[in-house]
């Protein structure tokens, strides 16, 4: 039975990858189980300088999901490259995916250039859901031209495969995906969280201090599957599918929709063992479905 998959020449022992922001820098989780069972790890999103992020409350419960407005809290790219990634590399032999964010093209460039120089980084994932401070605050990823602009900029300074992580808060995700492909992206991750809101009806205020936040969790799976499939049909880049995945059957579904690897996000917050459980469950499900090689189902629908 073959469970390994290949992203731009980089082999993952299986398609299961904890999504950025739901697994810290991998170190905390390494005390829960042996994280070497994971195909890859997408690290907490990092910006050029350290950020506190948004004020609390940052979390809101939702039906079959949650809202977060952490706001990219991170120690900055220098600490990531000099401390966090080397510490992870000591205990983890799988694929390390550095997730970078920026509020300007220059910041994306500097951040990507720093992580690209780290010998321990295998793939760079670029979060284009941040507001563009020079572009009226609109997220880079909500416009095909700016998404392409970020892609070109980061590709210029990266020697590692670059995956652009797409925002679902758009009218036509396929158009954005094509723009990234034309601009030289090596792959795509989708979907990021869906913009959402909850209101505390007793306090008459939004639940999260930042008013709005990113909705994720099991409830978003159908949206993610639809978008992964649309993007798979619209371009030829490898996809890391993400959104609402909570079990091995969701992984198979995501791959059938067109993903080569599958990220598990909010489920890690419900169950810190989720990724390990899915990795263990996957071969059993493959056997049941008569899948000899997991690669044979990618985009099969």
């Amino acid at each position: 039975m073959v469970t390994s998959v290949n992203l731009c020449g980089i082999e993952l022992r299986n398609p299961v990858v904890p999504a950025s922001g739901t697994f810290g820098f991998g170190l905390e989780a390494s005390s829960f189980y042996d994280i070497n069972c994971l195909g890859g790890i997408s690290l907490k999103g990092t910006t050029l300088e350290a950020r506190f992020g948004n004020e609390c409350p940052r979390i809101a419960e939702c039906p079959d999901g949650m809202i977060n407005s952490v706001g990219l809290q991170n120690p900055g790219v220098k600490v990531l490259v000099e401390e966090k990634i080397p510490a992870l590399r000591k205990i983890y032999g799988g694929v390390v995916i550095a997730n970078v964010s920026g509020f300007s093209i220059e910041e994306y460039e500097k951040c990507c250039s720093a992580v690209s120089a780290s010998p321990d980084v295998d793939i760079i994932e670029v979060n284009v859901s941040c507001p563009n401070v020079h572009g009226g605050g609109l997220a880079f990823g909500t416009d095909a031209a700016t998404a392409a602009q970020v892609t070109r900029a980061v590709k210029r300074v990266s020697t590692k495969p670059v995956f652009i992580k797409l925002s679902p808060n758009v009218t036509d995700i396929a158009a954005i995906a094509r723009a990234c492909e034309e601009a030289g992206a090596d792959g795509l991750t989708l979907i990021n969280t869906i913009l959402g809101m909850r209101i505390d009806i007793r306090r008459r205020k939004p639940v999260v201090a930042n008013r709005y936040g990113g909705f994720s969790g099991r409830a978003v799976l159908p949206v993610a599957l639809r978008m992964v499939n649309q993007v798979h049909n619209a371009c030829s880049l490898p996809i890391m599918g993400c959104g609402g995945v909570s079990c091995a059957s969701d992984v198979v579904e995501m791959m059938m929709a067109g993903a080569t690897a599958v990220q598990v996000g909010a489920e890690n917050l419900r169950n810190p063992m989720a990724c390990r459980d899915i990795v263990n469950e996957l071969p059993l499900l493959m056997e049941e479905l008569h899948i000899e090689n997991i690669n044979e189902i990618i985009g099969i629908v």
Partner: peptide
């Protein structure tokens, strides 16, 4: 006390300001 996501330090959903920098209430 703070509204928490994971409860085990991986999501940064409950970070507070402290004199010693940002800290996760849960972890």
């Amino acid at each position: 006390e703070e509204r928490m996501g994971c409860g085990c330090g991986i999501c940064f959903g409950c970070t507070c300001h402290t004199a010693d920098g940002p800290k996760r209430v849960c972890f």
